[in-house]
Design a protein around this nucleic acid. Structure first.
Length: 587
RNA sequence: GCGUCCAUAGCUCAGGGGAUAGAGCAACUGCCUUCUAAGCAGUAGGUCCCAGGUUCGAAUCCUGGUGGACGCGCCA
C-alpha cells in the first residue's frame, strides 16, 4: 500500500504545483500529506488541501476541485497504480483501480507466501536484543512473561524487516539472592532434590527462597549467614561452589523449560558469574583519563550532575564492581563479540535512570557506539485487584498461569465438542494458552503499565489471541474444504467479481501488512502489528458470514474469493508468530 | 524535594496534527436445517484530567496545574 501512496502523492504534488503555477503561486510540496480517508467510499488515499488555502487565497474545497479536475481520469489506465481522483470537500481523494490491486496483491502473496511480510527496510542492520535476564533464586513470573514476549516479538519483527538479529540473555546467577536460597536449603533441605520432591526444578529452588524469608523473619541473624555464604562464594570455597552450581543448574534448567514452553530462544547466554567483575578495568581507565574521580574512602565515582543526573558510584571502596560497573563491562564485551548497529535492552521502566547513567558513562568513556544503545522500557503488569507483591504472595507464577490457561482452553475444546476434530487436545490447548497470553501482553503499548486479567485474556470472545487464532482456523478450514470443490484456475480468475466493499477493505489490510510489520519493527512496538491483525481478522469474520466462499454457486466467485481467503490466511500465518501467537489450522 | 512516565466510554485498551474519537468486555435486542455460533448484526454508553498557548485545524504539539505509577542505594 505504501508504494501506492508514494506514487499518488507525487501525482497530487505535480497537479497542485501546476495549478499553482498557472495562477502565479508557488506551493510547498512538503505540505502535501497522504492520509487514509475514514471510509473506502470516499477514496483510498486522501490529500487535505487546507494548508494551501492561504497561498491560493481561496477555500480548500476550491483548490481540491481544481486539482481533482486536473488529475481526474488521467491515470485511469496508467501502467503503474492506475486509478482516478475525486474532490471530497476539502480533500483530493485517489481511488485505486480495484481489479489491478487485487491482481497485484494476490499474486504477490500467493506466489511466495513464505516471503509475505518480509521486507528490507532494516536490511544490513545488526541488532542485538537483550531480554529476559532472570534471577536464579526463583521461577519466572508474569512480569518476565511481558519481558520475554516483547523481546521475542521485537526480535522476530526486526528479522522480518531484514535486520540481522542476535538475541542475548544475561542470567543473574550470583549474588546475595541465590545465597539466600542456598542457606535455606542447607538448613532445611536435608539432601532433597527436585526429583525426590517431584517439583519443577526452578520452583524447587524458589521454594527455598520463600523459606529463607520465613527464617529471617524468625531470626534476623540469618541474614548474616547468607552474607557469609556470599563471601565464601567469592573466595571460591569448594563446598559453597558445589552447592551453588547444583542449585543454579536446577534453577536454570527449570527456567529453560519455561522458555521452551513459551517459544523463547537465545543466540547467546551470558552468565553474570562470569561477567560480574568486568567493567572494573574500564572504570580504572576512565579514572586515569579523568572522566571519573576517586573519593577519600577509595570508591570511584562519576559526576553526571551537569546532565541532570546524580553522582554515581562505579567501584566500591573495597574495589569491587557494582551492577552498573558490570553493565559497562558487558556492553563493551558485547560490542567486541558482535559489533552491532543497535543494542536494545528490554528492561522494565523502573530502570530508566540506570540506563541513562549507563549510556552516558559509556559515551564519556569514548565509545562512539554508545549512541546506538537503546532502553526499551516497558511498564509494570498489574492485576485486576491490585499489584503483584511478593510479600503478599500475589505474584503470578509464569508456569502456573500457563497451566491454568491451558486447562481453560482444553475445557473449552471439550465444551465445543471439538476434541475429535482437533486431535491433539493438550497441544492445541497449549497453543491457545500461549496465544491468549502473548496477544494480551503485546496488544498494549510497551511503555505503559497494564492490567493483566487472566480470565479476559483467554476469553474466547472479543479482542483476544484465541479470536485471532479462531479466524485463522476458520479460513484454513474453508481452504481445506475447497479441495473437493471445482475452482477456476488462478490464470483464468476474473478478479473483477470481487466487488463487495469488505473485499476491497480486506485486500487493503492485507496489502499494508508488510508496511505495518516494518513500522512496528522500527518503532519497537508489537501492539501496532497486533492491532492490524485484529482489524484484519475482525473484518474477515464479518465478511465470510455474509459472503459464502466454497458454498457459492458461481465458480468464478468461488475461485476469486478463495484466493482472497488464502491471502488473508497467509497474512495471519506470517503475522501471528511475530507476536508470539501460534497459528492454528484447526481449533 | 528532584527526575521520568502515564491520564480517552462503567472496566481493559487503540488512535500521537486533519473528514462524524474507535475496539473489546460488561448491559440490552436479533441471527445456527447453510464453509466451526470460540461467531455475526444492532442499541446504548465520551467536558479525550483541568487551564492557557501554537495552528487554517489539537484527544494528538508546547507551557503550567491536578491526580497516579516508578525512580533518585558502595542493591540488582
Amino acid at each position: 500500500m505504501e508504494q501506492y501512496r508514494r506514487i499518488w502523492k507525487e501525482r497530487v504534488e505535480e497537479a497542485l504545483s501546476a495549478v499553482a503555477e498557472e495562477e502565479g503561486h508557488t506551493i510547498d510540496r512538503d505540505a502535501v500529506a497522504a492520509e487514509t480517508p475514514p471510509s473506502s467510499e470516499l477514496g483510498d488515499i486522501g490529500f487535505p488541501m487546507f494548508p494551501f488555502a492561504r497561498v491560493f487565497r481561496t477555500s480548500p474545497q476550491n483548490i481540491a476541485g481544481k486539482v481533482a479536475e486536473r488529475i481526474a481520469d488521467r491515470y485511469a489506465s496508467a501502467s503503474q497504480a492506475p486509478g482516478t481522483v475525486t474532490q471530497e470537500g476539502p480533500y483530493v481523494n485517489a481511488k485505486l483501480d480495484r481489479p489491478s490491486v487485487f491482481a497485484n496483491v494476490l499474486d504477490t502473496v500467493l506466489s511466495a507466501p513464505e516471503q509475505w511480510g518480509r521486507t528490507g527496510r532494516e536490511e544490513g542492520r545488526r541488532v542485538m536484543v537483550e531480554f529476559s535476564c532472570p534471577n536464579t533464586n526463583k521461577p519466572l513470573h508474569l512480569g518476565h512473561l511481558r519481558n520475554d514476549a516483547l523481546g521475542e516479538s521485537v526480535s522476530r519483527m526486526l528479522d522480518a524487516a531484514g535486520a540481522t538479529v542476535r538475541k542475548v540473555n544475561l542470567i543473574n546467577d550470583r549474588g546475595i539472592h541465590i545465597c539466600k536460597s542456598m542457606l535455606a536449603y542447607l538448613k532445611l533441605g536435608e539432601g532433597s532434590t527436585p526429583e525426590s520432591e517431584g517439583k519443577k526444578s526452578d520452583h524447587f529452588v524458589g521454594d527455598y527462597y520463600v523459606k529463607y524469608e520465613e527464617l529471617v523473619r524468625e531470626n534476623p541473624k540469618v541474614a548474616d549467614e547468607a552474607a557469609d555464604l556470599l563471601r565464601r562464594w567469592e573466595q571460591g570455597d569448594p563446598e559453597v561452589m558445589e552447592l551453588w552450581k547444583r542449585m543454579n543448574d536446577w534453577a536454570v534448567s527449570g527456567i529453560e523449560e519455561s522458555y521452551r514452553a513459551t517459544g523463547v530462544t537465545f543466540d547467546q547466554i551470558y552468565l553474570e558469574s562470569e561477567t560480574y567483575t568486568s567493567g572494573r578495568d574500564e572504570v580504572l581507565r576512565g579514572l586515569e583519563q579523568g572522566v571519573f574521580f576517586r573519593a577519600e574512602d577509595g570508591s570511584v565515582w562519576v559526576d553526571l550532575e551537569d546532565v541532570g543526573l546524580d553522582k554515581k558510584v562505579l567501584l566500591r571502596s573495597d574495589g569491587t564492581s557494582l551492577y552498573l560497573t558490570q553493565d559497562i563491562g558487558t556492553a563493551i564485551a558485547r560490542y567486541r563479540d558482535w559489533p552491532f548497529d543497535r543494542l536494545i535492552y528490554v528492561v522494565a521502566s523502573e530502570q530508566r535512570y540506570h540506563f541513562q547513567v549507563l549510556f552516558t558513562v559509556l559515551s564519556r568513556l569514548g565509545f562512539e557506539w554508545a549512541d546506538s544503545l537503546y532502553h526499551l522500557a516497558y511498564g509494570m503488569v498489574n492485576l485486576p485487584h491490585g499489584k503483584m507483591k511478593s510479600r503478599e504472595g500475589t505474584v503470578v507464577d509464569a508456569d502456573d498461569l500457563l497451566a491454568e490457561l491451558q486447562e481453560l482452553a482444553a475445557q473449552e475444546i471439550h465444551n465445543k465438542e471439538r476434541a475429535d476434530v482437533v486431535g491433539d487436545v493438550p497441544a492445541t490447548a497449549r497453543s491457545i494458552a500461549l496465544g491468549a497470553l502473548h496477544y494480551y501482553l503485546l496488544q498494549a503499548t510497551p511503555n505503559k503499565d497494564m492490567v493483566f486479567d487472566p480470565a479476559a485474556s483467554i476469553s474466547f470472545t472479543g479482542n483476544t489471541g484465541p479470536y485471532l487464532q479462531y479466524m485463522g482456523a476458520r479460513i484454513s478450514s474453508i481452504v481445506r474444504k475447497s479441495h473437493g470443490v471445482q475452482i477456476a484456475p488462478w490464470e483464468e480468475l476474473d478478479l473483477s467479481v470481487l466487488s463487495a466493499p469488505e473485499e476491497w477493505d480486506l485486500i487493503k489490510l492485507v496489502s499494508s501488512f508488510p508496511d505495518t510489520v516494518s513500522e512496528a519493527a522500527s518503532e519497537l512496538n508489537p501492539a501496532l502489528l497486533a492491532n492490524h491483525l485484529y482489524d484484519l481478522a475482525k473484518l474477515f469474520s464479518r465478511y465470510y458470514h455474509e459472503h459464502p466462499v466454497i458454498t457459492n454457486d458461481d465458480p468464478a466467485l468461488r475461485g476469486a474469493r478463495l484466493a482472497l481467503c488464502r491471502a488473508v490466511a497467509h497474512t495471519l500465518r506470517a503475522g501471528l508468530p511475530l507476536i508470539g501467537v501460534p497459528f492454528l489450522e484447526t481449533m
